[in-house]
Amino acid sequence: MRAYLPDCDLRVAATLDDALALLAAEPGVWTPIAGGTDLMVVHNAGRLKATRFLDLSRLAELRGIAEEGDCLAFGALTSFTEVREHPAVHRHFPNLVKSARVTGALAIQNRGTLGGNIVNASPAADTPPSLLAYGAELELVSPRGRRRVAYDHFHLGYKQMDLAPDELVARILVPKPQGHSFHYFRKVGTRQAQAIAKVCLAAHARVQDGVLAELRIGLGSVAPVPARARHAEATLLGQPVAALPVAAARAALLDDMSPIDDIRASAHYRSVVTQNVLSHMLRELATA
C-alpha cells in the first residue's frame, strides 16, 4: 500500500443532499467513491492525486433498478451483480448482463457500480459500449437541480466528461427495445475472466422488412473514450440484412477508432480485431 494514509480523508455522506452540499461547498476537492474497485487500485499504488474522498455507498437515493415509462432506470450505485441478477435487465438488455458478467470477477461485480464504471471514464470499461448501443441517457444531479445528457455525448475526451464538479450521476436511463431486436456483445481480453478489454464491441439493431432499420454500435478500448461507431452505423443503416456492405462497414469503422499501442495490445491488433468482431456481429445479424 503506497498511499500515505494520514494525508487522506474520507467523509461518509448520509444523504444525497449532504453529498451535493459538500461537493458544491468545495468544488473539485472531494472525489466521490462508491464501490472503490477502480479508485482503490490507483490509491493502493500511490498514484492517486486525490486525497479527499466522499463515500456515496450509503445513499439509498442512488440505488435500485426501476421501470420508468419506456425506460429502465438504474441508480448510479447499482452493482454489476445487481445488473446480472435483475430479471428486467435480462429481459430487455442482454448486452448489459453480459458486460456486467465479464467485468472483473465476482468480488469486483459485487462492489463495482454502473455509475462508477461511467465516471471512472476508462475507455476499456465493459458496460459503456452496451450503454452506448442501447442509447442510454444519464441523469445528473447537483444542488442546482437535475439535468439529462445523452450518454453518447457525455464523454468529451480522455477522462473528460460533461460533469460539473458539483454534479453526480444519479441515474442511468436505458430505453427498452421495442419488439424483436438483435443484441450483440463481445469483449476481447486475452483471458476469459479478470480481463481488461483490448477490444469491446456492443451492438443493438432492429430489422424491419429485411432492412436494417436501427443500429447502434458501442466500442471500447479503441478510442480515448467509449465511442459510438457512427461511421460504420451510417454505412449499414437502411441496408438489406441479406446483403450487408460488410467491407464498406469495416472500412468506415476505421474512422470510428483511434486505437493506441499500450502494454495491453497494439493499435494494429485493436484495429484489425475490432473490424473482425464487427464482421462477426454482422454475420450473426444476418443469420439471426
Partner: peptide
C-alpha cells in the same frame, strides 16, 4: 518490466 501488475501480466484463471 512495465506491465508489473497482475492486471497486465496475464496468468491463467480457472476459466482459461
Amino acid at each position: 518490466m512495465i506491465n508489473n501488475q497482475m492486471t497486465n501480466y496475464i496468468i491463467p484463471t480457472s476459466a482459461d
